[in-house]
Design a protein around this nucleic acid. Structure first.
Lengths: 260, 260
DNA sequence: CGGTCGCTTGAATACCGTCAATTGTAGTGG
DNA sequence: CCACTACAATTGACGGTATTCAAGCGACCG
């Protein structure tokens, strides 16, 4: 059901024996893809080290807290939730990851994972081991630049997420969340206004610092106001303009900049 | 009204012709200092490019939103507040920076600053222009590693800050904030339990997603409970143990790990 | 068909935000 | 040095919003 890119390029393997191609094609779709813009020679090198097309089924962990980290991961399709566990056992949701996005940066500072990464649906990902990556960076100026560029953008992106999550009232947080999901989907050219959330209400709530019930109430209220239609995990945005107004036009701009 | 950097930078040259020394000394105190662990040769090189001992007086801007960014900055003493402005004109506080901490990472991806950085008190900082930094990284494997290490740790650090700011109730947010300040001070061996906040109540409130009044009420309540004494900006923590319990012991551990 | 799980809805409560008044503090000039 | 001013912080009362607890609904699955 959710296997966008794979399907679209199912006839990829024949194009190249090295198998770098699939990644190249992906790069056209994913602006922040790691090897984007690399010279062909280095691209080959890079491609020979990553482990591509791995599959994780819903509910499986990509990695656990405490586990030593040796790789970066990039999502090809599906979605991942990252979270820490408090001593009382409840989840503190850190974020959600969509196709084209990287996670597991702590591998770059050789620290163990400090959180869990869980597949919210069937998810295809690439694993990029850091030790060959480090070796490659010795030779490849452009790879080094690209990596630093990506990490840096991640920092500014997190900053913007912070602006969402810290909004005062529940309404604007939930609105901003929906706009964010919609914008991030637009990156890989999926429908902007009709989509299925892969996480449940509790996850959204934990992420936004609210309760499940409040998130639910906001959604039904938005529906009553004609801003969207919601049926379980399916969302249809009917009036994006108005939704942006709810979350604050400036917040929308921040989010928009983060995606472009 | 707020004119940026300008200011003094007077008697630097006499200590050393290369001027690396002051930075080296700092490195002993600041574990995350950029050139930490560099071979002497490269350290010299590095030191010759940074602009050290710049002074910013209270209320002055280190940089403005929109301004093009060409340097990283590291605090030597004092403190900096970073914030964005919403369209309604109110501040969205992103964070506070203390000695040993780096800011302005967007320079590494050659994007303009998307926020303001303001000195909360008289602040000494170093400016590290990125173009020589990039050139140096071509030759210096260890510098490259160190930079990536620092940026990566910044991401995990931000994640932990997120756990603070997203706590449900005001009490635990304020408590976590105080513990955080205290721990970050401990890095440069300042008093853990008696200190002066450099930001006002409104700044703290905006940072935590609360109001000034709520922050104030939490502080006086903590005082009534005997956890601390507060007089204007001066805080004396009387019972750190209990304070950590208020913010949730696991959050405290997260913060602690971020500092060490 | 009954059971589980995720989601919604309702009512009561607790908490935080708002507004307004007061006190306190720092900075300025007499 | 003190008085004055401007601004920061505190405090109180009130109303609104989110949480809590509990019940009800509906989809999915055995």
């Amino acid at each position: 059901m959710h296997s966008p890119i794979v399907v679209a390029h199912s006839n990829v393997a024949r194009e190249s024996s090295l198998g770098v191609d699939t990644h190249c094609i992906a790069c056209k779709l994913y602006p922040m893809c790691l090897p984007r813009g690399l010279p062909d020679k280095e691209l080959e090198d890079f491609g020979s080290h990553i482990r591509r097309r791995r599959i994780l089924h819903r509910g499986r962990m990509l990695y656990h807290a405490g586990q030593s980290s040796k790789s970066l991961y990039t999502i090809r399709s599906g979605s991942i939730k990252t979270f820490a566990l408090s001593s009382e056992g409840d989840e503190m949701v850190e974020g959600f990851y969509y196709p084209g996005e990287l996670l597991g940066f702590e591998a770059l500072s050789s620290e163990p994972h400090d959180h869990f990464a869980l597949a919210l649906e069937t998810t295809e990902y690439c694993e990029i081991p850091v030790s060959p990556l480090n070796r490659l960076m010795l030779r490849s100026e452009s790879l080094r630049r690209q990596l630093i560029h990506i990490i840096t953008r991640r920092i500014t992106g997190d900053r913007r997420q912070g602006y969402i999550r810290n909004r005062r009232d529940a309404r604007s947080r939930v609105a901003a969340y929906l706009v964010d999901v919609s914008l991030r989907r637009s990156r890989w050219r999926k429908s902007l206004d009709h989509f299925q959330l892969s996480m449940d209400r509790r996850d959204i709530a934990e992420y936004l610092g609210l309760t499940m019930e409040t998130v639910s109430r906001c959604l039904t209220q938005f529906q009553r106001e004609g801003l969207l239609r919601v049926k379980a995990k399916w969302i249809r945005l009917l009036n994006q303009q108005a939704l942006r107004a709810v979350c604050g036009s400036d917040v929308w701009e921040e989010l928009h900049r983060a995606v472009v």
